[in-house]
């Protein structure tokens, strides 16, 4: 949903609001808030909820093929968690005066965004490891910051979700560790998967700060506490150590350690690819949306039946 255009806010209330945020105060649903704050939160939270729901598809793609019963159960539990996160954040978004059904409709209409990472295909079992490790790992870095967001319901949702995402990341890394120590074919599977997921994972943090249109406002209002580049750097520093620990390599010939800052510096990110996928030309953009639309359309008769039955019950029929 596009943020609403700037409207003239009451300067006194706006000043009070910004002072409260500057003092690290928390904003609750019944508090006064600028229209832009509300619309930015609806945009971010609904995108987050959509991402959880669409994210069930690439991982769900491997539930029926998981190579052991234990892995199958862990993956089922994980994908179930993602659905729960989606539901939880949709409910959180409703505290801002929007309806979950309208948000879902925006997704189905192609008007709402979700994390572009899910427009990449899952091609091997190792991708389930890579997604848990890298994609959930990147999400945790982002969400740990959002757990300190100024909007109370979102911050509280993030605290709870981060706990579960930590399990997801651990199981993903455990899959990759097992593969990396496995047969030559399993090792190759792990490396090939890392090669495909590394750069898209870095893109998950969004454009460089200079090219991020919403960042300044989001930081001023305490919705985001750190910039895209700061978060990306934190993720890279955390992850490179993990890559080395299991004997894999990232597909970046320019990767270098900066002694002065203690940061791992990556080569240039292909922003053309990032924008191409965001704008709809990723391999799976159409498939993901088609899958959500098909589930919605094929489930229409079920939802109608539930409504009809409930109405009949209520009428004492």
């Amino acid at each position: 949903m596009p943020p609403s255009p700037a409207v003239a806010e009451d300067p006194v209330r706006l000043a009070e609001f910004e002072a409260r945020i500057a003092a690290d105060g928390s904003i609750e649903p019944k508090d006064w808030m600028p229209a832009r704050y509300r619309s930015q939160l609806v945009r971010m939270m609904s995108q987050h909820a959509h991402s959880e729901v669409v994210g069930m598809l690439p991982e769900g793609n491997w539930i029926t093929r998981a190579p052991s019963l234990r892995r199958k159960m862990i993956l089922l539990a994980k994908v179930q968690d993602e659905g729960g996160h989606g539901l939880y954040i949709y409910c959180g978004t409703e505290t801002l005066g929007v309806d979950r059904h309208d948000l879902v409709q925006q997704l189905l209409d192609g008007k709402a965004k979700y994390s572009s990472i899910f427009n990449y295909p899952t091609l091997t079992w190792a991708d389930i490891g890579a997604i848990g490790w890298l994609v959930d790992g990147a999400a945790i870095v982002n969400q740990t910051m959002l757990a300190k967001a100024s909007y109370g319901p979102y911050a509280r949702a993030m605290v709870r979700i981060c706990k579960e995402e930590n399990f997801h990341k651990r199981q993903g890394y455990e899959i990759m560790t097992t593969l990396a120590r496995g047969t030559p074919a399993q090792q190759a599977m792990a490396q090939e998967s890392l090669n495909r997921w590394w750069w898209p994972s870095l893109m998950m943090f969004g454009p460089h700060d200079a090219d991020s249109p919403n960042s300044d406002e989001l930081k001023r209002w305490g919705i985001k506490r750190k910039s895209n580049d700061e978060l990306r750097q934190r993720f890279v520093n955390l992850t490179i150590a993990q890559v080395k620990a299991i004997g894999l390599t990232v597909p970046d010939p320019d990767l270098a350690y900066d002694e002065a800052t203690g940061d791992w510096k990556t080569g240039p990110i292909d922003w053309d690819e990032f924008w191409r996928v965001v704008k709809g030309d990723g391999l799976c953009n159409k498939e993901r949306l088609d899958a959500r639309r098909a589930a919605h359309a094929e489930g229409a008769w079920v939802r109608e039946a539930a409504v009809a039955h409930a109405a009949r019950r209520a009428a004492g029929d």
């Binding site: 029926t64 589930a295 079920v302």
Partner: peptide, 20 residues
């Protein structure tokens, strides 16, 4: 488990994954 991500409502995606 084949239903995961394809159920009529999100609540059923969760319930069916749980049952599976």
């Amino acid at each position: 488990s084949e239903w995961c991500g394809h159920a009529p409502i999100l609540e059923e995606d969760i319930a069916l994954a749980n049952i599976a």
